[in-house]
Design a binder for these strands. Structure first.
Lengths: 284, 284
DNA sequence: CCAATCTATTGATAAAAGCGGTAGTAACTA
DNA sequence: TAGTTACTACCGCTTTTATCAATAGATTGG
């Protein structure tokens, strides 16, 4: 009532918006003033005017109402069966800006559902999902197909080849396999040591790291060149910290397929369903 | 009731702490559960056990209650006549860590009172306070005494002379006035251009800046040496970014007196009174 | 000066909150 | 195993609160 009266500027109007009579608002405000010990409105004018103290209390009242609102929306969310939390496991390289946007939207749609974001390398993810340690997996497609896991192809993640701007390779106008051979390539591998089939070696000198972020740091230090997801290096390229290589041969290879997975036959709650469907659009 | 029941683990105990009967708590919780649409407590055991959903709602309920608590404490504060805001003007160099502590304590004692922190140079402050544009002033004592303003001496702020570690002055074991003469001194002056009496020139080459922070930056860039408040340079000295000069002569000069001022005969509310009294201890 | 639109107040009424008591049940104790 | 204790749910009754409709007085704008 206090907030409605302050916003409409009149007790009668507040009553109308609240579906109550004018007298209810009037007595309500008076009672609140008695409780607080000071006047909220100045009644000397036709329309009640917030006093300075009323102005101060209004912000507190709004804060209370906002918390109550949070509570009821959370209750609605719980009532409609939203999960307590959703466990999303993804390859480090797939935390795209568009995915973050989906997660923000998720937070608004499912205010009472927490997200656990697990990161790892692609080959590990199907196993984690199969063991029900994550609800959804997002990863680069590997050769193997895990049993009991449902896979959905959602697109290709564009990769680019990069090195530091003063690297010898940047001097060439066109680069073929021969040129690459003689310069150090930085390549991803799994923490267990296995090399990933999606990312073939093209140089005689290959160093490995277990995350794309680590690879990017090494490239930026001038250690070598690498194929990296475009979104991880686009700002560095724009600011001149990295340079893109002009490759001659087939590019399609370097937009590896990405897929989204979940446990087959699992009963999905509304939150997991929404997230699973949304993630399908993360590359489009 | 929900929170009390969750914390005590029993509806009866909750009723006792709330000064209500057991039946009131029981029906209250049931009504809440009906409103929310799901059960908060599992009643199969002797003592009601929070369900998972109840656990989730409890955090929201606590948040609501906390906001209500904020509102009522603010109301109490307003009721007991606390000011809407307190305007504290101080010399940039006097924002000491101990002052920040007092301000934090102020925020707890007077939750509904805002603080406006105005910064300026010492000579301007008496005028601002005299014109009632600030409630309290904290500054280095100047020669002139402003009419209608009450001054309280509260202590001396220790100053030290500093320069960069590789400065020629650091090579000397003891420095007298003659040595200082030939090196550039960085000195404070007011924005209006007047030199401040408290900080005398000791070198033939003097550059000025209008804030101690600017002076410190210049010293750290190796522009010259300066007398600066100890608390502004103590961490830089400890980390080796600045070096302290070993002066031979009188040091007392370099702990300028600090005073706290307010308008004479002004009716002070509880917040201004408390802050004025607290600030007196800022240098002890 | 009038019409419209406020607010405060009053008496009546419906809704709610709460109390005391009771019955049924789970956990503990001897 | 039986008795005791402490707990919850439910019921009827009472008190308190919330709200309304109606009314009187006040302010504003044309």
């Amino acid at each position: 009532m206090f907030i409605a009266a302050a916003e409409s500027g009149s007790f009668s109007a507040a009553g109308r918006t609240l579906g109550k009579g004018q007298s209810a608002v009037s007595t309500g405000i008076v009672n609140l003033e008695v409780d607080l010990g000071f006047e909220l409105f100045d009644r000397t004018t036709r329309k009640p005017q917030l006093t300075e103290n009323g102005e101060r209390m209004l912000t507190y009242a709004r804060a209370v109402l906002m918390q109550v609102d949070n509570m009821t929306t959370a209750a609605d969310s719980i009532f409609s069966g939203d999960e307590t939390n959703v466990r999303l496991m993804l390859d480090d390289a797939l935390l795209l800006p568009s995915l973050s946007q989906f997660l923000i939207e998720f937070g608004e749609r499912f205010p009472a559902t927490r997200i656990d974001l697990l990161s790892g390398v692609s080959p590990d993810i199907p196993g984690i999902v199969a063991q029900d340690q994550a609800d959804i997996g997002l990863m680069f497609s590997g050769g193997s197909v895990q049993k009991g896991v449902e896979q959905v192809f959602i697109g290709n993640l564009p990769f680019v080849s990069v090195c530091v701007p003063n690297h010898p390779l940047t001097k060439l106008t066109e680069i073929g396999a021969n040129e690459l051979l003689s310069h150090r390539q930085l390549l991803l591998r799994s923490p267990q040591g296995s090399v990933l089939a999606q990312f073939p070696e093209l140089s005689t000198q290959v160093w490995h790291a277990t995350s794309f972020h680590a690879l990017r740091e090494l490239v930026m230090q001038g250690v070598g060149w690498a194929y990296l997801p475009e979104h991880l290096v686009s700002t560095a390229i724009a600011s001149g910290q990295l340079a893109r290589l002009n490759l001659r041969f087939e590019h399609k290879l370097w937009s590896p397929p990405v897929e989204c997975i979940k446990l087959k036959h699992s009963r999905m709650g509304p939150a997991v369903s929404w997230l699973f469907d949304s993630i399908k659009n993360v590359l489009s």
